[in-house]
Structures are given as C-alpha cells and as structure tokens.
Design a protein around this nucleic acid. Structure first.
Lengths: 117, 117
DNA sequence: CCCGATCGTTACGGGTCCGTATCATTAGCC
DNA sequence: GGCTAATGATACGGACCCGTAACGATCGGG
C-alpha cells in the first residue's frame, strides 16, 4: 500500500512545508541536522555519536556539533553510558518530541491541501 | 482529491529524504535556501530579491546571500532588469532545474516505499 | 599492569550566515 | 535640475559549521 504522489505534488509539498518552517521563525535546521533529529526520534534507541555518524555518512565532529546546537535549543540531550563510559547516549526531550510532532502535523496538513496534479 | 498521508508516514518520508540528501553529499541547503530555490522554480517569474524576501518573511540581505551561495553552486543566476535597472531578475539554470527534478524524483520514490502506517 | 583500540570531544584555519545599518544606483515626479 | 522613494548590495561584529588532526578518557586483552 505505497504512498502515491506525483513529482509536481512532491515539489509543491516540499516548498510549502519549508516556507512554513521559515516563516514560523523556527530554528533554521540544515538538512544534516534534520536528518539527525528525525533519526533520534524515529529509530530505536540507544543512539550514539558513532552510530549517527555512520548512518548519515559524515564524520563524528559533525554529529558532536549538531548535538551541541540542538542541545542548546533543547531538542536533544546527552548522557554518559554507565556500562561503557566511553559512550554517550543521545536522549530525547519533551521539547524535541513536540517539535517533531509539529513537523509531522505540518506535513500532513500541507499534503491534505495539495490538489491533484 | 487531497493527498492522504499519516503523521508517522510523513516523518519517515521526511527523514529518509533528508538522509538521502545528506548521503549524496549534495550541498547542505538550509530550510531558507530550500524555500528560496523551490519558490524560484515553482512560482511564475519574474522573481526579485524584494519579492522573495516578502514571501519568506525575511530581510533582503538573507536573499542576497542565499543567491550568492546558490549562484556559486550554479543553481540560479541574476540579471539586471533592463526596464527598471534597480531590479534584479533571478533566473533559473539548467543545473538548478536538474537539482529540483532530482529532489522531486527522490521524494516520489521514497514515498512509494513508505508502507502503510 | 600496559598497551593498543575505541569512544566522544576539542583545536585549528577557513568559510558561511545572521541581523542591523548603511550604501550606491535608479526611477519618477515636480 | 533637484528631491524623494525604492531597489539590491555591502560593511560590520558575532555566531555557527566545515574537514582534518589531535586529544583525554575508557575499555579490554595479553
């Protein structure tokens, strides 16, 4: 039961949601940061810097910096792993979950408004 | 004939497409840049700095800088308006059109892979 | 114990972007 | 011509991000 969508619809949806994000004055997340955020909130824990770097195909400092920024925004938090103290476990936050939920609603609503074609 | 999509589908689609963009090593466009690019390629010309700034709800320097960056990437180009030489007309490019088309195909394909739920 | 391997972080030099304020150029009108 | 209004570009100080390289902390096996 695949999701049917035409190229022109896809582009209009993509544009409209990005317009909404910009106009809402939300944090202007890059593609990398968005991918990291959604991976944390959609994939099963635990999440580590190493694992995220591998999934995204980027270096570890990229993840560290993104977590720094999103941490300041309250979207994620970090905690040392007590079983292997070299690891850092990335945790979800209430604010992050809310932001993700709002994004989902935004996409759903804008999709609903997309006429056929 | 609205486009039906569930919140969980929307999030998975959003994540997967962003993952693809990151992994393809493409230019890591911000939400603002994406909104600008798609507006130029989806809305009817002519496009001006002023008009784009108004549509996005941002200041003019934001548009100027974004056009600088995308110009270097070959995604857009600028030309002075011969009828009113204060204006700058933003033009599409072959590379830009290709990039937009690739994005559309990416979204369509990833949507097709989204199972129900 | 110690030493190599692995973890996440930090340092560095360079680039981009931000918002505000200012600028040069052009248009339009008297 | 001179004035105002409008356009897009630029200057500024500050913040963020990049990739590479190095770092301290920790684990685990000999």
């Amino acid at each position: 039961m695949p999701l049917e969508i035409k190229p022109s619809q896809a582009l209009r949806l993509w544009r409209q949601v990005h317009l909404d994000l910009v106009r809402d004055g939300q944090a202007d997340l890059s593609a990398r940061q968005t991918a990291i955020l959604l991976t944390i909130y959609l994939e099963l824990p635990p999440h580590t810097v190493r694992g995220l770097a591998a999934q995204l195909g980027v270096t570890k400092p990229v993840i560290t910096r993104a977590l720094d920024t999103m941490g300041k925004l309250g979207l994620v938090s970090r905690k040392r792993d007590d079983f292997d103290r070299r690891n850092v476990v990335i945790q979800r936050t209430v604010a992050g979950a809310l932001a993700v939920e709002r994004l989902a609603d935004l996409v759903v609503e804008r999709a609903r408004e997309m006429g056929g074609g």
